[in-house]
Design a protein around this nucleic acid. Sequence first.
DNA 1: ACCCAGGGTCATA
DNA 2: TATGACCATGGG
Length: 213
Amino acid sequence: MDPLTIYQRLSEHFGPRNWWPADTAFEVMVGAILTQNTAWINVVKAMDSLKAADCLSAESIDTLPQDTLARLIRPSGYYNMKAKRLKAYCSWYLQQGGFDSINAMPTDAMRETILSVYGVGPETADDIVLYAFNRPVFVIDSYTRRIFSRLGLVDGSKTYEELRQYFESRLPAEPALLNEYHALIVIHGKNYCRKRPLCDQCPLAIDCGYFQG
DNA sequence: ACCCAGGGTCATA
DNA sequence: TATGACCATGGG
């Protein structure tokens, strides 16, 4: 079974996912950092808090004291660390000249530059490259490792880059498809890999091994 | 009460 | 290169 077939199976089962859940490209970037190892419901609370304080902009976050920012994003967890990361990202973002300047870069250069920002690792960088800049990169997350290693298609212990190459070399470089694919992997993980050792209704008909790690 | 979520950095060997 | 400690709230 190849990655494209699995994509089609998930797509038929779940339908369009309309990712990323955000109103603007900048909100995608903030959300990508806030959701690191964190349930999305808590990220929504932190984002609402930022909006209510009228602080959901690169200029505000860059200007705000770290402690003040930390209090605003408290519900998302790791708030001291994430306040530092958000400020590092927004400082970099403004220094680059904002969305249009970054968007003028080729995808590979864009990815490397974003990856060099403090607090942005490979998954967060690819979330931003794909969902904020609509470039064709495949996002690897823990669900991806678990599902595809359980299917026997990859060694889940391989590096992020090795896994990314595996998928990108087997899928069309279409942002719309890669956008949908990652969203489908996440909804599949949420719906079928939690709470049940055996995923009875799983559209992939596999035991994702959730309780085995 | 326990587990973990749409990860990443840093120190250590 | 590869583990391990650490970060921290909130839902199931």
